[in-house]
Structure formats: C-alpha cells, structure tokens
Design a protein around this nucleic acid. Structure first.
Lengths: 274, 274
DNA sequence: CTGTATCCCCATGGATACTG
DNA sequence: CAGTATCCATGGGGATACAG
C-alpha cells in the first residue's frame, strides 16, 4: 500500500508507514499469535489460525520475514521442522497491540458474549452458528482438539455435543475454564451416565432455534453466579432432564445418578444453614 | 476484512478488530490529518491529501462516519460547506498513532532526507524526482500554495525555481522553516536581483543529474551548521554564481549585490575575532 | 463547493493439487 | 512436516464525467 504525497509531518508519515506493515489480513494475526505463544512451528501456526491455508501462511511468513518481523529457523532436517519467532522489531509491536486493545475496549466494547459451538456435524454447526450470530460472538469447532484450544480464550459459554469429547468427563472438567458456562448436547434418549458431565445444563437434539438461544441467554445471565448456587442449578437441570425420561425410582438407584441426589440434599442443607 | 476463527484471547481479537478499522489506504491518512490539524472542510482535506480523488475521499469519509470516527457537520448551505472533525473515538486513536510512531522511529528509522522539489513544469518535476529517488524522500509541488503547505513538514531541503514563488523573497523567508536548506533554481542568465532570495545556493537550469544530486548532498551534509557559517557560505555561493556572469566591478556597485559584499566582510571580521 | 454515478483494473486473497 | 505451483474470484481502489 503506497501513500505518496501527504501533507503531514514526518512523524505521522512514519506512523502510516508502520501501519501499512500491519495492513493486510494475516500478518497481524501471525504477529499476535507469536506475541501470545512465543516461537511456533509451521503446523502450530496452522492450528492456531484455522482459517488460513498453507499457501497463505507461507506467503504471510515470507512477507513478515522480508520485513524483519520474524525469524525462521530450521529445527530438524528430517523430518523438516522449522520454528518461527518474532525478531526484536516484531516483539516491539507489543505496545502497538496494547494501545489497540486499550482503544478497542473503550470504543468497540464488543461485550457480545462469546460462545463456542462444538459438534462433529459441520452442517449443524453452521446452522447453530447462524442462529446465534445476532446476539453472540459464536465460533465453531468440530473435534476435541479444536475445542481444547478454544478453551484458552475462556469463552463465556460452550455448547457442545458430549460425543465430541473423546476423553472422559473429568478430563473435560480439567480443560474447560471454570468460568465458562457449559451446555451439553445429548441425543433424544439421554443415558443416565450423562450426569458425569460437568455441564450447567443439557439440551436434547434436535435443537430448535428459540430453545438454543434461550438456553445460551440463560447461561450468560448466570455468569459470575456463586459456585454453590451454580452447582445446585446444574444438578437440578440434569435431574429434571433425566426425570423426563426415566422413573425417579430407577434414577435414585442408578450408580451414576444417585450421587447427585445425595449431593443435592447436602447442598440444600448447607444453604439452609445460612 | 474478516478474520473469523483465530485461536487468540479476546483482547487480541479486539486489537485485530481495531486494527482492521485502520487497514485501508486512506482512512488512517484522514485520521492522521485531522489529528494534526483539527476540523477540516472537504476541500481542505483534498488539499492536504493531494493524491486522493474526490470519490475516494467521499468513500473514505463515509466509512469513517459509519464507524463513528468522524462527525460531518454542515457549515453553510449555499454554497455548501461542510466540516469534518474527529469524534472522541477518533481522537482516542492518538495513542495508537503514538505507539506506531515510537515503533517506526526504532525500527523503520528511514532517515532518508526529505527533499521538496518545486517547479511549474511538471515534466521537469517528474524527472528531478526520479533522479533523487535513490537517495532521498522527494516530493514535488507545482505552485506556491503547495510549497507553503509542504513547509509544515519541515523538509530537510527544498529545491525550487524562484519563479514558483509569487510573493516576494521576504515572504518566502517567513514561510520556509529556518532549518530547511534552500536551493534556488534560476535561468541560465541569473539577474543580480536573485541575491534577495534567502537560499543556501543556486543552480542554473537546465540541471544535470549529477549536479543536482551533488548539490542536495552538499546541503544535507550541512544540516545543523551554525548560522554564521551558513550565512557566509550562502553569500559566497550567491556571489560566485553572479561573478560567473557579471564583472566584479559591476556587481560591487549594484544595489542588490553590494550589501552582500558588505555583509561578507562584517561576517569575516566577526569570525576573525573569535 | 461538495460531492455522485459509472466503469474498470489488478492486487490480495484463496482453492486445489502436488512435492522434497 | 513444511511447504510449492497454478489458477481463479472478489472487491478495494481509481479515472472520468457529471450534478445539486
């Protein structure tokens, strides 16, 4: 981008020149990622920026190298692995990003809640995403690895099919930020074992639009809720889902569900004390 | 510019969103100009940004308005005059530009001297500009008004045909920054009256490439020279030009030139004292 | 003076297939 | 794993003429 001949003091032209180095689609993204994560390999950058294609990443990295914002170094020869890291000049862009963040918080203030949608079915993902786009910043993932990475952003809400998670529920519990409200998606006839999942609520597939939006809204409203209340509501929600399918008698003797009833009474007790 | 789906904390995405508001050719220029000069009218913006066409300026201003970075207000209805000024959000971009300037000074450090070329003949301007482009940041103007505006940038050197300046030499002296080294362009047979022009040196047209570059180089080397030395060299240069055309006898009695000889001896005296 | 309305170019970005 | 090579589409940017 060339901007010859502007009646402006040299300092301002310098700022515009600097800005033009950041004025394309992917270069600032790569810089931001490297600022956050330190040196990364080609494949790690690809993973961190899902929407970039290998050729675009190559072009971007080449351009950044030419401008001396990143260094490329070969780690191993075979198989070939390389590492990209910021140069001093690149690292010194941190204050620029800081000032942009400060401005953004003041004037974009996009406090639209962030929602991660996770499902193996990409058609469904697209549909759900479209439903939520009016009200939320939604992003979609279609496997566990992607979902885990999204957790780094501490989204406000995660809506995910529990089948998406290959590992066990405790692993999910460890990966998912505590503050993130969790909505589990289950099949039409939920198994009692679903109560092992640390979700705030569950929705049965297939979803309806209003149902999904209402559920997400409800979770967003409850952001910052004190932990005991949150846990109580989660258990109640889980139990009420199961009670719609199974008899209470059956549930109270089920190995997965019984602990929830116990936990519920103990929570009720401690809440009654206060 | 859309950058969906990046694995990055919300703050960084905010920075990228903010950045994308500044990622086109003219919007940051308009912002920078308004930050420097305060509210401006459409025509003033056109003048400050010579390379923008009216339709591009319109588009740019519309886009800036949509993003709430500038406000448009009608000053008079007929003839229609409007004024554009930064909103609070726009003004708050100053720290962003500051950080860009800081980064630029550290890492672009393009300290190529800036040279303003002034001539009524645009073909010549283009030629001279091409000659200087290897070594200098040159910009061209073809009338007095443009030259005056360029002075706001305190260029390192100005090379201008003295016929370009419609007003008298004292006016030029007042407008041109003191630190800017001045090279006057004169016809083949310079009039003695040229010594009224406050130039560091003169060149006779037509110019040769090596001659022009050498002259500009010489002036750049002398940037920051103490004033008495500068004035002495300026007078010597002026006199030697005239002495190449006229007899010394004639010059010493000329009403324009005689004061220069006097001034020269008085400068020599004061220099000898130290 | 302050813009519109059209038309058009080409650089940026992207899809796809292939490779050391 | 870390890229290349090719081809293609879009839309940002611009030239020109016109208008309230």
């Amino acid at each position: 981008m060339d901007r010859p001949d502007v009646f402006l003091p040299p300092d301002d032209r310098l700022a515009l020149d600097a800005l033009s180095l950041l004025s394309n689609k992917w270069e600032p993204v790569v810089i931001a990622v490297l600022l956050e994560s330190g040196p990364l390999r080609f494949s790690e950058l690809e993973a961190a920026i899902p929407d970039i294609s290998p050729n675009m990443l190559t072009k971007t990295l080449e351009s950044l190298s030419e401008h001396d914002l990143i260094d490329r170094s070969v780690v191993t020869d075979s198989p070939l692995t390389v590492s990209y890291e910021l140069t001093d000049a690149g690292r010194d862009l941190q204050p620029v990003f800081d000032s942009l963040i400060a401005w953004g918080s003041d004037h974009i203030g996009s406090v639209r809640p962030t929602v991660i949608l996770g499902d193996r079915d990409r058609r469904l993902l697209e549909l759900y995403g479209a439903w939520l786009d009016n009200e939320f910043d939604s992003q979609t993932v279609s496997d566990q690895a992607q979902l885990q990475r999204r957790f780094a952003e501490t989204p406000d809400v995660v809506v995910f099919d529990i089948d998406l998670w290959d590992d066990d529920p405790p692993t999910f519990s460890r990966r998912c930020p505590g503050t993130t409200r969790r909505i589990g998606l289950v099949g039409d006839r939920p198994a009692p074992s679903l109560c092992a999942w640390p979700c705030d609520t569950f929705l049965r597939k297939p979803l309806r639009k209003d149902e999904l939006i209402a559920a997400v809204d409800r979770q967003v409203e409850r952001l910052g809720q004190p932990e005991p209340t949150r846990e109580r509501e989660a258990i109640e929600s889980t139990l009420s889902l199961l009670e719609g399918t199974y008899s209470k008698q059956l549930l109270e003797t089920d190995e997965h569900v019984a602990p929830l009833y116990d936990r519920l009474s103990s929570l009720d007790d401690s809440l009654r004390e206060t």
